[in-house]
Design a protein around this nucleic acid. Structure first.
Length: 244
DNA sequence: ACCTTTTTTCCTGATT
DNA sequence: AAATCAGGAAAAAAGG
């Protein structure tokens, strides 16, 4: 039910970004659903609970992740590096800049960012409710203080690591940026990090690489005959420098 | 409850 | 010799 409704926010009429009016109409007040929502819990700053202008980079990431998840935006058309910014910067982005950074998704993101800038506490509450209903996922994302987007698949994890120098710390390295060829520099570290992500402390590079080999079949990766070297295949997206 | 896809685990054997 | 690569098989986890 949430899905159908929320979709209608984003996939409707043209480019126009008219404000969302009907939250209470649709859902009742947020309090009806989450009477105990506390929008300034001690430890973690939930991004929905603070005005976007005050968001940290992490908050922006979480917001982006939320949008992708909740509105089924294709993360592949989003240039993550463009969103390595804080809330103030996010708020000052024009529609053109959103489109630059995220193609067609940028229009929706622009739309949504406008909504949250506007004020609409009901909207904040609604988002918070979605996050909580969606369970641990987004919260974990927070508690681990991740600065990159969570992605469920191994190849996306690898890709995002490749794309975020901060977290990468020399674990992966581009061999040929244009062709999507990369090398695993620290195999054990990679396995450990993937294990962390999956909450599996028994992960090893042996096992991780088995999973990577399965990608050859699906065209996510292509075989490179060098040890510890892989190449993104035609079915992998979002790794190119100038994507869209 | 069921089904599909992805990932994990384990293994045998080859290669570097 | 120690890592890595190759996949088959099967089980578990995830997602729908």
């Amino acid at each position: 039910m949430l899905d159908s409704v929320t979709h209608s926010i984003f996939l409707p009429n043209t480019m126009g970004c008219e404000p969302l009016m009907s939250w209470t109409e649709l859902f009742g007040t947020a309090e009806d659903y989450y009477p105990t929502v506390d929008h300034q819990t001690g430890s973690d700053l939930f991004w929905p609970s603070i005005h976007p202008e005050y968001w940290s980079k992490e908050n922006v990431c979480d917001w982006l992740q939320f949008c992708c998840d909740q509105y089924k935006l294709d993360a592949n058309c989003i240039s993550f590096s463009h969103f390595n910014i804080n809330g103030l910067q996010l708020c000052s982005m024009s529609q053109e800049e959103f489109v630059d950074a995220a193609g067609i998704c940028g229009e929706y993101l622009y739309c949504f960012s406008n909504q949250i800038k506007k004020k609409s506490y009901n909207l904040f509450y609604f988002i918070l409710a979605c996050l909580r209903a969606g369970g641990i996922k987004s919260q974990e994302c927070h508690s681990h203080g991740r600065t990159s987007l969570q992605s469920s698949h191994l190849w996306e994890f690898v890709r995002d690591l490749l794309l975020s120098p901060e977290e990468n710390c020399g674990i992966l390295e581009w061999e040929d940026r244009e062709q999507g060829i990369f090398r695993v520099v620290k195999s054990e570290a990679l396995a450990k990090m993937w294990g962390q992500r999956k909450k599996n402390d028994r992960m090893t590079y042996e096992k991780l690489s088995r999973a990577l080999r399965y990608y050859y079949k699906t065209g996510i990766l292509e075989r490179v005959d060098r040890r510890l070297v892989y190449k993104f295949g035609k079915n992998a997206h979002g790794w190119q420098e100038n994507k869209l």
